[in-house]
């Protein structure tokens, strides 16, 4: 996929969800992670990287900066569940951290 990322539309974007992707954005920055969602308004990608021993790091790549999105692999069932629960767990609702 090249350049036309913001124009792909919801049905194409959703086909990238739950896949591990490599995103080229900006000049030469590269981002990797499990794709959790794509904002249909800004076409921004939400990538999650799980850390060993719990927790995760989230990278949001702005749609306007995307140059290339490459699929590396599909998530297994466990990863999919973990991924989709990322923003629903009570831990992320805490406001004091």
């Amino acid at each position: 996929m090249q350049c036309g990322w913001p124009l792909l539309g919801p049905l194409r974007w959703i086909s990238y969800v739950n896949k591990q992707v490599k995103v080229k954005a900006g000049k030469d920055a590269e981002h990797r992670g499990w794709l959790m969602t794509v904002d249909p308004v800004s076409s921004s990608l939400v990538l999650v990287t799980f850390r060993e021993g719990g927790g995760a790091s989230v990278q949001v790549v702005m749609g306007h900066a995307v140059e290339e999105v490459q699929v590396l692999q599909e998530a297994d069932e466990e990863t999919t569940e973990r991924l989709q629960a990322s923003f629903l767990s009570p831990q992320t609702c805490r406001l004091d951290q």
Binding site: P10, L11, W13, I14, M36, V38, V41, V46, F87, T92
Partner: peptide
């Protein structure tokens, strides 16, 4: 309707991400 559903699933997750 498929497209609308996909759009709303994607958008809701993104809004939850921003809220988090």
């Amino acid at each position: 309707s498929e497209e609308q559903h996909a759009r709303s699933v994607l958008r809701e997750s993104f809004l939850r991400c921003l809220l988090s």
